[in-house]
Design a protein around this nucleic acid. Structure first.
Length: 835
RNA sequence: GGGCGAGUGGCGGAACGGCAGACGCGCCGGCCUUAGGAGCCGGUGUCCGCAGGACGUGCGAGUUCGAAUCUCGCCUCGCCCACCA
C-alpha cells in the first residue's frame, strides 16, 4: 500500500505549488488570457471589486475581498461570457501627504512605490484581473477627467461654492465631509481626533437634488442593510412647514418644519438655532447681552459637546414673541443649541407635551406644557411627554379639530394652514450637500480661477489638466500647501485675460472613485473621460463587491454621479451597478480591525510561500460565509492544503485492476454509477454555491467529491470513464477557486491549454439522483428508524414498511396510528394516538 | 434612544419548517516509520450503556404531526445612525 502510494507519488511528482503557480500566472498574462476585448460579440459581464488605496502592502483582507468576485467572474467566463474584471488604485489621499510630512518623502514618490509593490502582490493572488485596464487616480491622465467632470457639474449647477459651517479636523488640518465624521463623539474618520466647527468657503456638490431618486432601489439587488443605511442617511421626513408671525415691524414670519402638525395647538414656545439669521433681528435690547454670550458659547463648542443627547438642555429667551397661528396665542421665542441650523428651517415650534426634547427644555425653563393629543378617553401622562403615535389618539384642546383622530388631523391641519397662507405640506431630508473641497495637496486640483473682475471662473477644458506642481512645502498649516506656490497660484481669467488667482483646494478622493468604473471601459482614451460607445457596451456594472463601510459614502456618491451625468446627457442609464455584495471584514487575531497602528495586520506573503496561492485563496473562502468575515485564525489551513494534495494524487492516479464486487459498495458498475451521481450532483451544488457567494459550502462539496473519488480509486476504478469524468469535473469546478492547480493538473492529464477556456460542466439531472433513497422514519417527530427503498416506491408501500418497523411498533404498542405524515422523498412521521 | 444583524460540539462553521452538527480544524486510537511536527486508516455532541435509550441549537412561552429554522417576550454580542423637530 505504502509502496504503491510512493510509486504513484514518484510518477506524479511531489505536490509543490511553487513549482508551477508562478509559471502559469506568467503564461496567462503573456497570453492575455483574461483581457476583456471590447469587440468580443459574446454576452458582456462587468464584474468589479472596489479598488484599494495604495497604503503600502496587501494584507489578508485584500485577498479575502478580491477572491470572492474573482471566483464569480471566472464562473461567468467559463460559461462563455465576455467578462471584464479590472483593477486599479485610489491613489490620491491624506496618508501620502502624511508620509511627506513625517518622513520627507514626496507624496507621489511614496504613492507610486506603494502601487508598484501592491501591483506585484496583487499578481500573486492569481486573480483574473485585466491589468491592461488599470486606472490610477493620481495620474494626470486620470485626474484631468476628474477635473473635467467637476466642470460639467459646475455648468449644470450641481457644483457651487458657499460659506458654511464645516467639520474641521484640527489634527489633519482639513475639512471633512459629514460622512467622514464618525461616532457619538464626532471624530475624524482618519485619525480619530474630535472635529470642530469652522465657517469656511467651500465647494459642494448638490446631491440633495437627487435625494428622492436615491431612495428608489427598484431593480437593484443590494444587501438589505445597505439599502437601510442609505435610506436612513438620506432621512426623508414628511411633515409641514408652518409660519409663525412675529411681533416686529417688517419681519417675515418664522418658518418651522414639523413632522407633527397635529400638535400645533400645543406649541407653547419657539426655539431658534443660535445661528438662525433672525436672532440678531429679533433680540430685544435688554436680552442682548445674554443672547450674545449664548451664541458665542455655542459657536465655540465642539460637535462633541453640542451633539450629545444626554446633555442638559440650555438656551436663552431673546425677549421677542411670535403668534401661534392656530391658537393666536403669544408665545416666547428662545434660542437653544439643541436646534440645529442645518436641518429643516433651523427653527422649531416647541411642543413640550409631545416631544421629549421640548419637554426637557420646558421643564428646565419652566415653560407651559399643554397636552393636545391623548389616547381616546385617556389622561395626560404624569411627568413626561406623550409621543406615542399609534392609531387611537385623538386631539383635545385644539379648537375645531378637537376630537379628531390624530392620524387624520395631520392632513387636516396641514390643509387648513395652506388655506390660511401659513404653510403647507413639506418634506425634509437629513442628507446635506456633499462637501468636496479639501485644503490639501495630494488630490485633483479644483479647476477654478478667481478674477477680481469676474469672480469664480471655470478653467477652460482645453487647459486641463490643472497639474499639481511637484515642488511644494508640506508643513500642515491649515491652508493648502498650494497656497504658497506662487507659480501655481498665478492664473489668467478666461473671461478677460487679466491676472487671476487659482483655486488651491483639491477634491475629496471620493470624487475620483465616483467615476472610476466608467474609466475602466476605455482607460487609455485621451480625447474623453470615456468612450460613449464602450461605456454603453459595458455599463452598468453587473456585479460590484466591496466593504459595507462605504454604504453612505462611496456607494451613495457614485449613484449620485451616474444620475447627474445621465441628466447632463452623458450617460444613458440610471445606476452604476445592478448587483451589490459586501464581503465581511477579516479582523486581526485580537478581534480588532486590522491596522498598522495596532500592529495586527496579517500579511499573506508567508502563507503564500509556504502553501501557495491556491491554498490561501481556498482557505479564505472556506473559513465561513463570505459576507460574514471574522477574526483571522490560520488554524485549519493545513486541511485545505491536504485537500489540494489529495486532488494532486487523485488526478494522477494510475489505472489499477478493478476490484471485485464488494459486499458494501456493490458491483463495479454500481460503484461507477455512484461516482457519476456524486460528480453530477456536485456540479449542480457547486454552481449554485458559487453564484450565491456561498464559497464555504462550495469548498465543502468539492472536498466531498474528492473523498468519493478517493473511495473509487481504492475500489479500483482509477482507469474507468466514470473516474476520468469525476476527476476532470473536479478540476473544472476547482478552476475558479484554485486556478493554478486546476491548470497544472489539466495539462498533466493530457488536456489542452487552458482549463480556463473550457466550458463550465453541466449537471445531468438523471445521473444526479439516486435510485434508492434512505427515508428517516419518525414517531411523533422523533427519529426512530430508517427505510431504504427504491426511489419510485409508492406511498402506501412506504407507509406499510414504516408501520412494520419494530422501532415504530414499540411506540405504537399495538394501537393504530392516529395519522401518518409523508413528505415524498424526505421522511415518514408516524403520529401515535397519544393518551 | 432608534434601526439592522447574530447567538448551534473543544474551534471555524453545515442544515427548502422534515435525519442537528455536512465539510474542515483539533483531539483520541491504529498503520507506516530510526523518528514524526510527513502520509494513510478509524473514532469523536453530552450522559447512561450489553442491546438500546435519554438529553441537546442563548433563556421562556406559543404555532405545528414535526421548530436551530416561524410568532411573541426576555438576555447577550456586533454593526450603523443618533438633540434630524
Amino acid at each position: 500500500m505504502t509502496t504503491d502510494t510512493e510509486a504513484r507519488a514518484a510518477r506524479a511528482g511531489r505536490f509543490d505549488p511553487a513549482s508551477y503557480e508562478r509559471r502559469w500566472r506568467e503564461r496567462w498574462e503573456a497570453d492575455r488570457l483574461f483581457h476583456a476585448d471590447d469587440d468580443d460579440p459574446r454576452q458582456k459581464r462587468y464584474v468589479l471589486t472596489m479598488y484599494p488605496y495604495p497604503s503600502g502592502d496587501l494584507h489578508i483582507g485584500h485577498w479575502y475581498a478580491a477572491v470572492g468576485p474573482d471566483i464569480v467572474a471566472r464562473l461567468h467566463r467559463m460559461r462563455g461570457e465576455n467578462v471584464m474584471f479590472p483593477m486599479g488604485f485610489d491613489s490620491f489621499g491624506l496618508p501620502a501627504e502624511n508620509a511627506a510630512i513625517d518622513r520627507g518623502i514626496h507624496p507621489a514618490t511614496w504613492t507610486y512605490a506603494n502601487i508598484d509593490r501592491m501591483r506585484a502582490q496583487f499578481r500573486t493572488m492569481g486573480c483574473m484581473f485585466d491589468w491592461e485596464r488599470e486606472v490610477v487616480t493620481s495620474d494626470p491622465e486620470y485626474y484631468r477627467w476628474t477635473q473635467w467632470l467637476f466642470l460639467q457639474f459646475y455648468k449644470a449647477g450641481l457644483a457651487y461654492r458657499a460659506m458654511a459651517p464645516v467639520d474641521w479636523c484640527p489634527k489633519d488640518q482639513v475639512v471633512l465631509a459629514r460622512e467622514q465624521v464618525e461616532g457619538v463623539d464626532r471624530r475624524c474618520w482618519r485619525c480619530g481626533t474630535p472635529v470642530v466647527k469652522r465657517d469656511l468657503e467651500q465647494w459642494f456638490f448638490r446631491i440633495t437634488r437627487y435625494a428622492d431618486e436615491l431612495l428608489n432601489f427598484e431593480g437593484l439587488d443590494y444587501p438589505e442593510p445597505i439599502k437601510a443605511m442609505q435610506t436612513n442617511w438620506i432621512g426623508r421626513s414628511e411633515g409641514a412647514e408652518i409660519d409663525f408671525p412675529v411681533e416686529a415691524e417688517g419681519v417675515d414670519p418664522i418658518r418651522v418644519f414639523t413632522t407633527r402638525p397635529d400638535t400645533v395647538f400645543g406649541a407653547t414656545f419657539m426655539v431658534l438655532a443660535p445661528e438662525h439669521p433672525y436672532v440678531s433681528v429679533l433680540t430685544t435690547p435688554e436680552r442682548q447681552a445674554d443672547v450674545s454670550a449664548y451664541v458665542a458659547a455655542a459657536r465655540r463648542e465642539t460637535e462633541i459637546e453640542r451633539m450629545s443627547a444626554e446633555r442638559e438642555k440650555t438656551g436663552v429667551f431673546i425677549g421677542a414673541h411670535a403668534i401661534n397661528p392656530m391658537t393666536r396665542e403669544r408665545i416666547p421665542i428662545w434660542i437653544a443649541d439643541y436646534v440645529l441650523p442645518g436641518y429643516g428651517t433651523g427653527a422649531i415650534m416647541a411642543v413640550p407635551a409631545h416631544d421629549e426634547r421640548d419637554y426637557a427644555f420646558a421643564r428646565a425653563y419652566d415653560l407651559p406644557i399643554r397636552y393636545v393629543v391623548l389616547p381616546r378617553g385617556g389622561e395626560p401622562p404624569e411627568g413626561q411627554a406623550f409621543v406615542a403615535h399609534t392609531q387611537d389618539e385623538v386631539l383635545v384642546d385644539s379648537g375645531e379639530f378637537s376630537g379628531m383622530p390624530a392620524a387624520e388631523a395631520i392632513g387636516a391641519i396641514t390643509r387648513r394652514l395652506g388655506e390660511l397662507g401659513l404653510g403647507g405640506p413639506a418634506v425634509s431630508y437629513k442628507i446635506r450637500d456633499w462637501l468636496v473641497s479639501r485644503q490639501r495637496y495630494w488630490g485633483a486640483p479644483i479647476p477654478i480661477v478667481y478674477c477680481p473682475q469676474h469672480g469664480a471662473q471655470p478653467v477652460p477644458e482645453e487647459q486641463l489638466p490643472v497639474v499639481l506642481p511637484p515642488d511644494v512645502d508640506f508643513a500642515p498649516t491649515g491652508v493648502s500647501p498650494l497656497q504658497s506656490h506662487a507659480e501655481f497660484l498665478a492664473a489668467r481669467c478666461p473671461e478677460c485675460g487679466g491676472e487671476a488667482r487659482r483655486e488651491t483646494d483639491t477634491m475629496d478622493t471620493f470624487v475620483d472613485s465616483s467615476w472610476y468604473f466608467l474609466r475602466y471601459c476605455s482607460p487609455r482614451d485621451e480625447a474623453a473621460a470615456w468612450d460613449p460607445e464602450k461605456v454603453a457596451a459595458w455599463m452598468p456594472v453587473d456585479l460590484y463587491t466591496g466593504g459595507a463601510e462605504h454604504a453612505v459614502m462611496h456607494l451613495l456618491y457614485a449613484r449620485f454621479f451616474v444620475k447627474a451625468l445621465r441628466d447632463m446627457g452623458l450617460l444613458a442609464f440610471d445606476e452604476p451597478w445592478l448587483v451589490l455584495r459586501n464581503q465581511g471584514q477579516i479582523l486581526g487575531m485580537d478581534h480588532q480591525r486590522m491596522s498598522k497602528s495596532r500592529g495586527n495586520v496579517v500579511a499573506p506573503d508567508e502563507l503564500v510561500s509556504r502553501y501557495g496561492a491556491d491554498t490561501v485563496r481556498m482557505f479564505l473562502m472556506f473559513i465561513g460565509p463570505w459576507d460574514q468575515g471574522g477574526p483571522w485564525n490560520p488554524t485549519g489551513i493545513e486541511g485545505v492544503h491536504r485537500f489540494l494534495g489529495r486532488v494532486w494524487s487523485l488526478a494522477q492516479a494510475e489505472p489499477s485492476t478493478p476490484a471485485p464486487s464488494d459486499e458494501l459498495l456493490g458491483t463495479p458498475d454500481e460503484m461507477a454509477r455512484a461516482l457519476r451521481r456524486a460528480t453530477h450532483s456536485t456540479i449542480a451544488e457547486v454552481t449554485e454555491d458559487y453564484s450565491g457567494f456561498r464559497f464555504n459550502t462550495a469548498v465543502a462539496k468539492l472536498m466531498e467529491l474528492s473523498n468519493a473519488i478517493g473511495r473509487a480509486r481504492d475500489a479500483g476504478l482509477a482507469g474507468t470513464d466514470a473516474y476520468a469524468e469525476a476527476v476532470d469535473t473536479l478540476l473544472l469546478l476547482l478552476a475558479p477557486i484554485a486556478p493554478h492547480i486546476a491548470e497544472e493538473l489539466w495539462e498533466r492529464r493530457g488536456h489542452g491549454y487552458s482549463i480556463h477556456d473550457q466550458a463550465w460542466p453541466e449537471a445531468d439531472p438523471e445521473l444526479a439522483v439516486a435510485d434508492t433513497i434512505e427515508l428517516p422514519v419518525q414517531v411523533d417527530g422523533r427519529l426512530r428508524d430508517r427505510l431504504v427503498v427504491r426511489r419510485d416506491t409508492p406511498a402506501e408501500e412506504i407507509e406499510r414498511l414504516a408501520l412494520a418497523s419494530e422501532h415504530v411498533q414499540r411506540y405504537l404498542a399495538g394501537r393504530p396510528p392516529r395519522r401518518v405524515v409523508q413528505i415524498p422523498g424526505r421522511l415518514v412521521n408516524v403520529v401515535t394516538p397519544g393518551d
